[in-house]
Design a protein around this nucleic acid. Structure first.
Length: 491
RNA sequence: CGGGAUGUAGCGCAGCCUGGUAGCGCGCUUCGUUCGGGACGAAGAGGCCGGAGGUUCGAAUCCUCUCAUCCCGACCA
């Protein structure tokens, strides 16, 4: 058990917060609601970025960059879009400071007022579609498949490290297509990319589905999402992919000439995942001993720690350790040999355990004598002694095994926390006593969803894409329903 | 924007009620002994007590104002 670290059962929220800070991933900054992502946290984010970026490029997308500022007038062009974001926008009104004539510090120079205020982007649909108007003239310009890695600002009232911050990092894909079918196919393709990333890289099982109208993205015709379930039974939206129809094309007048020489509005999608995925990753696997990282996203996959008393021992151990390190690196495994004299082995064990390094190797005089190494895996905390011969292959297999084990554990946990409810009493009782995903019937109306939310704080996380037709009665109103949807309390 | 709380060393806190010039733990520095699961001892460094005003011979402590932050709600990737 780590020092001064709460357990999950004691206080899950505190556990999460302390974990993020003590594992050195992020901390609160001087700016309310904005975090500093520290090198260790950023390294994990970079691994996520690299994997996602490759997937985007493999599916034909290219990266570009659009401005952080958006003219205020752009926001009024798409009615539901502005309505969705108006309440959480940071606005730039002036462009100059001056010395305070009354003495201390600086003040805003009122003479430097902008003609038109600039909005710090909460998302980039408007500026991008304003730009696309000039890029798209012919069917030959389509499809346009662009992604941007950026920061965005949403002025949230209450923030939590990674899960909800006023500024966050994300990627946003914005594509333009000649037909609705093509755009829908793109929307679904990117949803699959996200699901694949979540499951095969993050080792977090997700449910693919579509959002109910209440939860739909402001300006979208249909919002697809992947929903994950955390260990405490609360759901977390891990990614969204929107079919925007022709809403933005019409708002920003983006038209092209078809093969038939007809002027047509283009069809759009947008899709994004954010640093919130860090929160999902942390909560999905970590335990009361600290962070647990899936090998595919761990900045350091293997750490080697020497145990010695004398310089002679250290030099023998170092020779062996460096050899193992080189061989592991040749297999593409990231290895750190921590031979710092300033920390003791026990301290290092705890340090790397807390930071979630998947595999730890310890080499001491006994190992040098026996030709062995002590191998400890973070996911199960099991220790065993391996013979040195072909150690690289064994470690390679161990990493794969850990990755699979983490996914399986997360899947088991989600299955345990997934229930069906057929009556209102059952539904409320499940929410209060167990949490998790609850499959239940809903009459399909926004009013009912709203009432359920007000009474239980649970929302429809999604209507699963693989939901089977099943006649039933809405848990609240008793009206007929054709399939179950997934309810949960969410982050 | 409603309800509650807190600002004292890098971090976490005590001191305030009953005014007398600031202390504890962790961390940090140095030296020695240690080193197979967060070592121990000794010696050090570090704070105009959130800010402004007031009461007083004297304010971290009492009074007034102010700023900031955190927690609980409404909003949300």
């Amino acid at each position: 058990m780590a020092k001064d670290f709460p357990s999950r059962s004691e206080n899950y929220a505190q556990w999460y917060n302390d974990l993020v800070i003590k594992a050195d991933m992020a901390e609160n900054s001087a700016v309310r609601g904005c975090m500093v992502i520290k090198p260790y946290g950023y390294a994990i984010w970079e691994k996520m970025q690299a994997a996602l970026d490759k997937k985007f490029k493999d599916t034909g997308h290219v990266n570009a960059y659009f401005p952080i500022f958006i003219p205020k007038s752009f926001f009024s062009k798409e009615a539901s879009h502005v309505e969705g974001f108006a309440k959480e926008c940071a606005v730039v009104t002036h462009y100059r400071l001056k010395n305070d004539p009354n003495g201390k510090g600086v003040v805003v120079d009122e003479t430097a007022k902008l003609e038109e205020e600039l909005i710090v982007r909460p998302t980039s649909e408007t500026i991008i579609w304003d730009t696309y108007r000039t890029w798209i003239k012919s069917y030959r310009d389509l499809p346009l498949l662009i992604n941007q890695w950026a920061n965005v600002v949403r002025w949230e009232m209450r923030t939590r490290l990674f899960l909800r911050t006023a500024e966050f990092l994300w990627q946003e894909g914005h594509t333009a297509h000649a037909t609705a079918d093509e755009a829908i196919a793109e929307t679904e393709r990117m949803l699959d990319v996200y699901a694949d990333f979540a499951e095969n890289w993050m080792a977090v099982p997700v449910i693919k589905g579509i959002k109910s109208p209440n939860e739909r993205f402001a300006g979208a015709v249909e919002t697809y999402c992947i929903e994950a379930l955390m260990q405490d039974g609360k759901a977390l939206q891990a990614g969204t992919s929107h079919f925007l129809g022709q809403n933005f094309a019409k708002a920003f007048d983006v038209q092209y000439l078809s093969k038939e020489n007809k002027l047509e509005y283009v069809w759009a999608t947008s899709w994004g995942v954010s640093t919130r995925l860090m929160g999902a990753l942390i909560m999905a696997h970590s335990d009361d001993n600290g962070l647990v990282l899936p090998p595919k996203l761990a900045p350091t996959q293997v750490v080697i720690i020497p145990i010695y008393k004398t310089e002679e021992q250290l030099s023998l151990i170092s020779e062996k350790a460096n050899q193992i390190k080189t061989n592991l690196q040749a297999k593409g495994i990231s290895v750190k040999y921590d031979d710092r004299e300033t920390y003791k082995p026990g301290w290092k064990f705890n340090e790397y355990e807390f930071k979630g390094v998947p595999v730890r190797l310890a080499i001491g005089p006994r190992d040098i004598e026996n030709g062995t190494v002590e191998v400890s895996r973070r996911d199960t905390l099991e220790k065993s002694v391996y013979q040195l011969s072909d150690i690289e292959t064994k470690i390679d297999h161990l990493l794969i095994n850990i990755q699979e084990n983490l996914y399986q554990k997360a899947l088991d946990s989600r299955d345990r926390l997934t229930s069906k409810a057929d009556t209102w009493e059952e539904f409320v009782s499940l929410l209060d006593n167990k949490g998790g995903f609850i499959h239940a019937h809903w009459d399909g109306t926004p009013e009912t969803e709203q009432r359920i939310k007000e009474e239980t704080k649970a929302t429809i996380r999604c209507i699963p894409l693989d939901a089977k037709p099943e006649a039933g009665k809405c848990i609240l109103t008793g009206k007929p329903s054709e399939k179950r949807v997934i309810f949960a309390r969410a982050y």
